[in-house]
């Protein structure tokens, strides 16, 4: 009995979620959908790099998504939000995708807000007053430590992450 109820309720959840707050995403590498937000749980489906998903919710390092007819949990870092495809490399994605998918009203809305640009930075004149203001705001180590303690933060021993396998020789300055 229960076995039937779960898919039905999951389906209903998807339908309501899709209309309310599901957002599109793209899978960044070949991955698995788990039944729970932990890699020890049952694998519901495999999803291929580039597959489209609907993001339903987030919990810690996991996103609950639907991919095709499957729903499950996938690692947060294996999905990019937005409908821009699996890669961001290349101008095509940064500029091209936006023009095809963007909501014109949104672009107009932000066009008035001019961002920082190269020229602003290049022309910038040293501002001693602002620098003094910045330096006056410096806090001490013991202030930072007691601030952390107030909310129960404590140092945790976390090993560093490995460097990636070199995919291509990185540019050294000899061949610049």
């Amino acid at each position: 009995m229960k076995k039937f109820l779960i898919p039905v309720s999951a389906f209903l959840l998807c339908v309501s979620a899709a209309s309310a707050w599901a957002s599109p995403g793209t899978v960044l590498r070949n991955e698995q959908l788990f039944s729970q937000p932990t890699s020890g749980s049952r694998v519901e489906a495999n999803v291929a790099k580039g597959a489209s998903v609907n993001i339903l919710s987030k919990q810690g390092g996991w996103l609950r998504v639907t991919a095709g007819r499957s729903t499950g949990w996938i690692r947060l870092l294996s999905v990019r939000a937005g409908a821009g495809g699996s890669g961001g490399s290349g101008v095509g994605d940064v500029f091209g995708a936006a023009t095809t998918r963007s909501d014109p009203s949104r672009v107009v809305a932000v066009a008035g807000l001019r961002g920082l640009n190269d020229e602003d930075l290049k022309q910038a004149k040293f501002n001693a007053g602002e620098l003094a203001r910045l330096e006056a705001g410096t806090v001490t180590t013991s202030q930072a430590q007691s601030f952390a303690k107030q909310s129960g933060l404590a140092s945790v021993n976390v090993p560093g992450l490995p460097e990636p396998r070199p995919a291509q020789p990185s540019s050294s300055w000899e061949n610049n």
Binding site: S23, R80, A81, G82, G84, G88, D93, V94, F95, A97, A98, T99, R101, S102, D103, R106, V107, V110, A111, L113, R114, G115
Partner: peptide, 10 residues
């Protein structure tokens, strides 16, 4: 990643 890429702010 979900921001519109043509946004001047980015």
């Amino acid at each position: 990643a979900a921001l519109p890429a043509k946004d001047n702010r980015t």
